[in-house]
Amino acid sequence: MARGKIQIKRIENQTNRQVTYSKRRNGLFKKAHELSVLCDAKVSIIMISTTHKLHEYITPTVTTKQVIDQYQKVVGVDLWNTHYEKMQEHLKKLKEVNRNLRMEIRQRMGESLTDMGYEQIVNLIEDIDTSLRLIRERKYKVISNQIETGRKKLRNVEEIHKNLMLEFDAKEDDQHYRLVGNNGNYDSVLGYPNGGPCIVALRPPPPNHYNHHHHHNHNNHHSNFLHQCGGASASDLITFPLLE
C-alpha cells in the first residue's frame, strides 16, 4: 500500500510534532552514519528541538571542533574571533558600569566632588535626602517593632504573675496547703517534740509544813517536766510551757 504524501508545513499538534521530530532525527542520523562510512566523509549534524534539547551526530573519527575549524578555513571566516570580540565589548560595558557605580559611591561619601557641577551637586543632595528619609522610616519601623515586642513580653510576664497569684490564693484557701490556721496546732507545725519549748525558773525551798513525801512527789513531777523540756534534772527548778 502506497504511503500518502505528507504536506510540508509545521505540525500543529505538539505530540505529533515531537514524535515526527524523533523519528526523522533518527533517520537522518542513520543516513549520516551510512554516508560517513561508505564515502569516508566527515559529517557533523547539530539539532536543537523546540524543547531546547540538543542532539548531535559527528563522524566517529573526528570531533565537532575539528569540523568547525576546517569549515572556517574553507569558508574564510573566524567564528571564534567574532565571538571573542563580542565578549570583549560586553566586558568593556560592564567595566564602565562598575566605574560609574564606584564614583557614585565615593560622591555619596563626600569624596570626588571636584569635577561635579552645580546641577550634579543639587541632584546628589536630593538623592541623599531621599535616601535619608527612607533610612529614617526604616529606623522608626524597627524601633516600633522592638517596642511592640517589649510590650508583648511585658504582657506575658504580667499574665504569668497574675496566674501565679491566683494559684497562690487558691492554695491559701485550701486546708491542705495552709500551715497554721485560726485553730492550727503550732507544736505540730514547728516540729517541737513533747509539747514545745518551755520557760525554766528556779524554785525556792519548800516551806517547812510540806512533808517529805509531798516534797519527793513534787520533785519527781518537776524532774519529768524538765526531762520533757530538754533533758535537764534539778529539784530546785520549776518549768512552764512556753506556748500555754
Score class of each variant (00 low, 15 high):
residue 198 C to L: 05
residue 198 C to A: 15
residue 199 I to S: 15
residue 199 I to A: 15
residue 200 V to Y: 13
residue 200 V to M: 11
residue 201 A to D: 15
residue 201 A to E: 15
residue 201 A to R: 12
residue 202 L to S: 12
residue 202 L to G: 10
residue 203 R to W: 09
residue 204 P to W: 05
residue 204 P to E: 14
residue 205 P to Q: 10
residue 205 P to R: 08
residue 206 P to S: 13
residue 206 P to C: 06
residue 206 P to L: 10
residue 207 P to S: 12
residue 207 P to H: 09
residue 207 P to A: 13
residue 207 P to C: 06
residue 207 P to K: 06
residue 208 N to Q: 10
residue 208 N to M: 05
residue 208 N to E: 15
residue 208 N to P: 01
residue 209 H to N: 10
residue 209 H to W: 07
residue 209 H to F: 09
residue 211 N to H: 07
residue 211 N to K: 07
residue 212 H to W: 05
residue 212 H to I: 09
residue 212 H to Y: 10
residue 212 H to D: 15
residue 213 H to K: 09
residue 213 H to E: 14
residue 214 H to S: 12
residue 214 H to G: 04
residue 214 H to N: 08
residue 215 H to N: 13
residue 216 H to M: 06
residue 216 H to G: 11
residue 216 H to K: 11
residue 217 N to H: 12
residue 218 H to Q: 09
residue 218 H to N: 06
residue 218 H to A: 08
residue 219 N to P: 00
residue 219 N to A: 11
residue 219 N to V: 05
residue 219 N to Y: 02
residue 220 N to R: 10
residue 220 N to S: 13
residue 220 N to D: 13
residue 221 H to Q: 05
residue 222 H to V: 01
residue 222 H to Y: 07
residue 223 S to V: 09
residue 223 S to P: 00
residue 223 S to Q: 14
residue 223 S to R: 13
residue 223 S to Y: 13
residue 224 N to Q: 10
residue 224 N to W: 06
residue 224 N to Y: 06
residue 225 F to H: 09
residue 225 F to G: 08
residue 225 F to P: 01
residue 225 F to L: 03
residue 225 F to C: 01
residue 226 L to C: 12
residue 226 L to W: 03
residue 226 L to H: 11
residue 226 L to A: 11
residue 226 L to E: 08
residue 227 H to P: 00
residue 228 Q to V: 00
residue 228 Q to N: 11
residue 228 Q to G: 05
residue 229 C to D: 03
residue 229 C to W: 04
residue 229 C to A: 04
residue 230 G to R: 01
residue 230 G to V: 03
residue 230 G to L: 04
residue 231 G to N: 02
residue 231 G to I: 02
residue 231 G to Y: 00
residue 232 A to E: 11
residue 233 S to C: 06
